[in-house]
Nucleic acid binder design. Structure first.
Lengths: 149, 149
DNA sequence: GAGATTTAAGTTGTGCGCAACTTGATTGCG
DNA sequence: CGCAATCAAGTTGCGCACAACTTAAATCTC
């Protein structure tokens, strides 16, 4: 569609994209930090709670697959959520390797307090719905391609 | 342009974008980890080296502004780069609060070894140049808006 | 059925990211 | 001038991310 850029510019573009991604991810982190402070959650903890609110109790493995996180990250994170009284872990009886993560009543209740969060973030992005869809689409494709390579 | 989606979908879209961003950022991290292993650099260390290769010796403060990182992150990172012999730090004589970061000859030479890295990453993304531009644009706008809020 | 392989979760160690703080230098203001 | 406010860099502490490893259970294979 356009003239292909010279090599140098192309390579520059690449690291600009990576850098933008890195910066944007941390900028989101900052806004979430504020929005979640009252709930006492970090952003990754909030992601885990979203999974549990939406899909119910499930094994650590399943949470990890949904969030692209391994047990080295999830185990201590879940331990903190358990200490905070939001979650409890129970070793499965059928397969004793597996541990199922359940919401406690407090964890379930927190859902309501978390409802206004997404709107705050949405407003802070300054993007239109169209743009958000485009962004989500591109990011999804990149992640898929990168993971495959 | 399109029918506005109902509230629930809109809020869903928001956390999907945040999640995609988080996931994409980590996926890039993984690919860079492989590409930079031979150079003995992590991705954030590589970003610092890019700044020095491109703009020459400069104070910690300036590096932090370019990369959106504070001294709590940069100080130990620079110490590691110094231990690796790629960089050395010198306290400014005019303003003794400031520390200027210089490339060592080894740090300068590493530039050549790093040249093939961007192309590898570029290929791994699976996106066209158009799409990369769009992505960079959207991410830049989001970061700006989020930082301002 | 016994032994090798695979699997789920957890542990350890390293580095990044950031808040909160310390230290020492500079600037600004009365 | 003198002292407060500001500023640059560094330190500490905590949580996330991930590689490499351990442990214990399930599965596969002969």
């Amino acid at each position: 569609m356009t003239t292909l850029p010279p090599d140098a510019e192309l390579l520059r573009l690449d690291h600009q994209v990576c850098f933008s991604l890195h910066a944007a991810s941390r900028a989101f982190g900052g806004v979430y930090r504020d929005a979640l402070k009252d709930l006492g959650l970090t952003y990754p903890q909030y992601l885990v709670m979203l999974v549990l609110w939406e899909h119910g109790a499930q094994p650590v493995k399943a949470i990890g697959e949904r969030l692209r996180l391994d047990s080295g990250t999830l185990s201590p994170l879940l331990k903190r959520l358990e200490t905070a009284g939001l979650v409890h872990r129970e070793r499965s009886t059928e397969d004793e390797r597996s541990v199922t993560v359940h919401l406690t009543p407090a964890g379930d209740e927190l859902r309501e307090a978390a409802l206004p969060v997404p709107r705050r973030i949405l407003a802070a992005t300054g993007l239109t719905v169209e743009e958000l869809r485009t962004l989500r689409g591109l990011l999804g494709r990149v992640t898929g391609a990168l993971d495959a390579s």
